[in-house]
């Protein structure tokens, strides 16, 4: 594991160069350029806010637009980094067939690329906080840790997905469907507090309520989004009780995903 890490450190320049290429190429001939990185979450915030006025979602004391924007930031980062990671190996077939370097560079590069776009969204978040007159708290220091954890979640999907996608392109096709389902299973449109209230306080599903809540929080994104909103907007530490099932799952899946990727790696050039 340490060997892999030092090995990857040696390739940091390559990762930076590839990430920089991804970003430049994407926005080079686009008039709005990198602004597209913020347009997507903004549009979604707009639609969700509009929707909320029909169905009524209780967002607590936090204004709904900024609450959902803070949910969309980690969600979009996760979703785009994972799907780009899954496509990264097949998308770089030309390089795979010609030049050797550790193949995990590709999914990692996708993560780096999306981190840049996430960074841009932080500027917008800051703007929104100023607008809603919300002051940041000391708990903001949790943000790097939460994002680090999100990256691990992304990698545990991206690596196995990228390897499988080389053999079966079904993976890349199925992914958007899976993600749009997962978004409804994550507290993006609604806050986690609603789920918590329904299941833990009201025991809405009877004796199954506690188990159902654990199952819900097995989705790492549930804990991540809630924690992000906590530390940025609510001025609270992350709610670990909502995070541990997802963490356990990630810690189990990540090594498996990495091993599958490494095993498949040597055949990429032959199969792709």
């Amino acid at each position: 594991m340490i060997k892999t890490a030092t090995n990857l450190y040696a390739y940091r320049e390559l990762m930076m160069a590839l990430a920089w290429k991804n970003i430049t190429v994407r926005y080079k001939q686009a008039y709005l350029g990198i602004a597209w990185a913020v347009i997507k979450p903004l549009m979604l915030v707009l639609i969700f806010t509009l929707m909320k006025s029909f169905i009524g979602i209780d967002s607590g004391e936090i204004p709904y637009p900024i609450l959902t924007f803070a949910a969309l930031m980690p969600w979009i980062f996760f979703q785009e980094a994972a799907s780009e990671g899954v496509n990264s190996v097949v998308g770089n077939a030309g390089l795979i067939r010609k030049i050797y370097f550790p193949r995990e560079i590709f999914p990692l590069t996708s993560v780096v690329t999306k981190l840049v776009e996430l960074g841009i969204n932080f500027l917008l978040l800051a703007g929104l906080m100023v607008y809603y007159q919300m002051a940041p708290t000391i708990y903001l220091l949790w943000v790097p840790l939460i994002i680090g954890y999100t990256i691990l979640v992304v990698l545990s999907i991206a690596m196995v997905g990228a390897a499988m996608n080389v053999y079966y392109r079904d993976v890349a096709t199925a992914l958007p469907v899976a993600f749009s389902l997962l978004m409804y299973a994550s507290p993006v449109i609604y806050p986690l507090t609603l789920v918590k209230e329904k299941l833990l306080v009201n025991q809405a599903a009877g004796e199954w309520s506690n188990i159902l809540y654990t199952v819900y929080t097995l989705n790492p994104l549930a804990g991540i989004i809630d924690a992000f909103q906590h530390v940025v907007l609510r001025g609270l530490p992350p709610d670990l009780s909502a995070m541990w099932p997802g963490m356990v799952l990630t810690l189990v899946l990540l090594p498996i995903s990495y091993l599958i990727f490494k095993r498949a790696e040597s055949h990429f050039a032959d199969v792709i």
Partner: peptide
Amino acid sequence: DLTGRENIFLNAAILG
């Protein structure tokens, strides 16, 4: 899509 200059730096990184 990249210029010659950008490609030199990118390709160099790829070639190590």
